[in-house]
Nucleic acid binder design. Structure first.
Lengths: 137, 137
DNA sequence: GTAATTCCTCTAGTCACTAGAGGTTCAAGA
DNA sequence: TCTTGAACCTCTAGTGACTAGAGGAATTAC
């Protein structure tokens, strides 16, 4: 049996956030001690770890909820699980590409700034390539 | 001269969001027509595009503001620029590292299922199982 | 000139937390 | 067993970054 603090330490999810997830229905209402404190089992721990990872991946809570409901999925449900994972993977890769272009511009700036003071910074031009934009515009 | 709607279409930033950025000081107060409507120039467009990309990358608005303040810096200002750029670069690299580990995790998850429909998917276990994480969660 | 569209301000709502107040319970040590 | 301090409880309110809607004025296209 874990206290809410144990769960927090093991998952890295803050205590108020765990209560928030419970309120939202993402975590089942746990067993309570005689003194009204929450006590969790191994299943709750796994579930919370799953939520944590999904959030790290940028999934909104409704998507996380959808995935949780598909636990043990078979047959046609698998397509839905894979669809969500694939979509996230694509977005992630675009994001990395974009970040690296900004990294390159910042590197240029810091490298140049080390020397003489005779240039102008052009941060606004860091994202010259709009072909890899995340959204549509 | 662009209307707020033109700017919105060209950047993918919604109209109320543009007004919100103005309120927050990320965009300068633009010229107004006799009828009190906003009109923007090329600089505003570029600036908004930069904000859009930075937000897509997950940078919080205060960081975006810091980056924007680097634009056009010259001479002695570059010392300060160097400081901000350095800090942003460090954070950027941490972010890229994190995203890379998450990418690997998602790849593993999608690879775990071969797409056939004759088994129970292990995807959710892969998410929740701490032991197979490559990252530092 | 009129009708459709876009714009204006303002208020309030959303998502996913996060902080704080004010009080209760639990667990380790004397 | 008693005490004390950390951890817990509920509840309200605040945060960041938008987003939606009301009610009305300006602009644009025909």
């Amino acid at each position: 049996m874990y206290s809410i603090g144990d769960l927090s330490r093991q998952t890295g999810v803050k205590v108020p956030t765990i209560r928030f997830y419970e309120e939202k229905g993402l975590l089942a209402k746990p067993y309570r001690t005689a003194g009204n404190q929450r006590r969790y089992d191994e299943t709750a721990l796994k579930r919370l770890q799953f939520i944590r990872h999904s959030r790290d991946l940028g999934l909104p809570l409704p998507d996380v909820e959808a995935l949780l409901s598909l636990e043990g999925a078979q047959g046609a449900d698998l397509d839905h699980v894979h669809e969500i994972a694939d979509r996230q993977l694509t977005e992630l890769r675009n994001r990395i590409t974009l970040l690296r272009s900004l990294e390159a511009e910042l590197e240029r700036i810091t490298a140049a700034c080390d020397g003489t003071h005779d240039h102008v910074c052009e941060v606004l031009n860091a994202f010259g390539d709009h072909s890899i934009c995340l959204g549509s515009h």
